[in-house]
């Protein structure tokens, strides 16, 4: 029994059960397949997380986001600067850089992106760790202070998307949100 010493002293010379061996082979091949499929997705898939990352001081990152928001803040038909709930709506040039800062407790600013265009999307934190969770798409990334993460992001459908923080960041965590608008 499993709670007594093996009956055969030389237990490592005992034969392996046939069904057991077959299962081991199946499981081993499946494990290999899953390993190679992760690599394959880098070639056949369109969803692979970029690893382009820069060290940055939180203060200088916030300055760059603010400069970006000033430069590209959207205007409506009558030429007024657009904002929602006091947060500027920023319209980065298609194919250009789009900046987002996560901080206690908001994602700033609101980005307005064009569907089908790709952007160099920068994200970092100004203070604690945060979690970027784009809904209802369900893209979830960790956001660190001091690390600027850059990915090429292409929205595939128009609409208004929510960003919800999903890394605990203190008592205001459940009020930390943001927004991305995707237009034609």
């Amino acid at each position: 029994m499993a709670i007594s010493s093996p009956e055969q002293r030389l237990w490592w010379k005992q034969p392996i059960h046939g069904a057991e061996l077959a299962w081991i082979i199946v499981v081993f091949l499946w494990g290999l397949f899953m390993f190679f499929f992760m690599i394959a997705w880098h070639f056949i898939g369109n969803q692979n997380l970029s690893t382009e990352t820069y060290r940055v001081s939180p203060d200088s990152y916030v300055e760059r986001v603010e400069a970006f928001a000033d430069e590209f803040q959207a205007t409506d038909a009558s030429g007024n600067l657009m904002e929602e709930e006091g947060v500027p709506v920023v319209r980065p040039p298609a194919g250009g850089d789009a900046y987002l800062v996560a901080r206690l407790w908001e994602f700033w600013p609101i980005l307005e992106l064009k569907v089908g265009e790709s952007y160099r999307f920068h994200i970092s934190s100004a203070d604690w760790q945060h979690g970027f969770s784009l809904q209802p798409v369900n893209i979830n990334l960790s956001v660190h202070p001091g690390y600027e993460h850059v990915l090429s992001l292409t929205p595939t459908e128009t609409g208004v998307y929510g960003i919800v923080c999903n890394e605990f960041c203190g008592i205001g965590h459940h009020s930390m949100t943001g927004r991305i608008r995707v237009v034609e």
Partner: peptide
Amino acid sequence: PRRQWDISLSEAALGY
């Protein structure tokens, strides 16, 4: 999200 008190986000400026 995990570790989150209120998924209705009632205290958030930008709701979802």
